[in-house]
Design a protein around this nucleic acid. Structure first.
Lengths: 237, 237
DNA sequence: CAAGCAGAACCTGTATGACAGCTTAAGTGA
DNA sequence: TCACTTAAGCTGTCATACAGGTTCTGCTTG
């Protein structure tokens, strides 16, 4: 059975209504921002109660396939990493995924991202990446700000890769990363360790700005090696 | 604003109820299979109507964070790639993601997967991988079966990598892959091209069985190079 | 005639009540 | 003690109601 068929058949009326709505989006080639029929219209068309249509809408809204807003009609949504982030956080909190496994995947993905970024970045993107690295150094004493700039640094790289799927995945991992980042930071007890972590980011930024994918990949690899070491030394499995 | 806070605050009562329920899962350390309070109980506890609780449940069920079933209480769900698959399919159908971009990400991920699989596979897993490769050759004339075994081959590799996040991502991409696979197959018009595609899979399987990560990575890279070539020659952007 | 404004029509968010059908737990009887 | 029956609990769907936000229409005014 295909995935869609599974979703459609299971869950009864709501599930099949979800299928009908997604089919409607696809068949009519609706693009992000386009409006869907009203709940009442769909209820009449599909011969179900408004309750069922609403629950189907909620399901699609949870995956950010559509967007809901009071008074307005539902619209097709631009792709968003929010739901993926929640799914992964759930996997970690229920011990189905370990932080180390997350980092191995991130390392794999971000090494590719940084290579693409080095090849494709615009000057403005290079500047944005460097700016985040500088902001990190400037925030050495403000942990919260430091983390924010660290995350933004990686997002900026993903953006410069010009492949939105990488942006999606980086975003998907940032939810759980934000929850574990302080652990790694606390485990870097010496000024040297903390300085080195900042320096790693600067090296990555330099390589991207220089348009040197090999150097960028190496620097990103070292960055993750160091990060995993820090997390392990903090006792994370 | 954090991701969770965003989800909680937006969407009004339902959004905040989703937040309350996820907090409940986390605070009580509920594991997959554990039962949640009934809709009525939650409605009373959180001081909202059953309608709101139901819509919150639907939202969580859409992300497969919980599972719903008639008559039974909602349970915490094991992590599943279904929602991610739908999200990505939506991104492709609305022209926010191209197939080529998907393949670049898959290539990146699966080259790592195959390296891990070569290092970590059990004998049973190696046998399963080889079996799918053989099944592909046996299905040369049955396109549907051939595709099924191709997808299963890649799932088996992800499983052998012993990192569930890779399994999650491979699953997330298989929905859209299944929809575009026939395009690539049709573009392989000569028997040689089709034979070569099968042979690529066999080479990957051999390297994994031999425990040779370098050879496995190279073979997987060639497989994706060839696949992307096939898709491009079919006119896919 | 154009621009802005007011009101009507439409739409969503939430609540309540009802009932069918399924599941679980309690209790009963052998 | 165990199997069975029954009652209680739970979910799925429907209908209805209404508050409050949005959109469109048409009118008023400059």
């Amino acid at each position: 059975m295909t995935l869609e068929a599974e979703v459609e058949s299971s869950g009864g009326l709501v599930g099949s209504t979800v299928g009908e709505i997604t089919r409607l989006i696809r068949d009519q080639d609706l693009m992000p921002g386009d409006r869907l029929p009203s709940e009442a219209t769909l209820a009449k068309t599909l011969q179900v109660s408004r309750t069922v249509v609403r629950e189907a809408f909620r399901s699609l809204a949870a995956m950010r396939i559509i967007e809901l807003a009071t008074g307005k009609r539902a619209t097709v949504a631009p792709i968003d990493h929010g739901p993926m982030s929640l799914i992964i956080e759930h996997g970690v909190h229920t011990d189905q995924i370990s932080i180390q496994q997350i980092y191995d995947v991130r390392r794999t993905i971000e090494r590719r991202i940084v290579a693409l970024a080095a090849l494709r970045r615009s000057d403005a993107e290079a500047a944005a990446i460097e700016a985040e690295a500088r902001a990190m150094r400037a925030s050495l004493s403000d942990t919260a700000a430091l983390m924010r700039h660290d995350l933004a640094f990686h997002r900026a790289l993903a953006h410069a890769s010009k492949n939105p799927v990488f942006g999606l995945l980086v975003g998907a991992f940032q939810g759980i990363t934000a929850q574990t980042w302080p652990i790694g930071w606390k485990s870097r007890t010496t000024p040297d360790a903390r300085e080195g972590m900042i320096a790693n980011h600067e090296k990555i930024a330099e390589a991207v700005t220089a348009g040197d994918p090999e150097a960028a990949v190496v620097a990103m690899g070292l960055h993750f090696d160091e990060s995993v070491r820090a997390l392990l030394s903090a006792g994370l499995t």
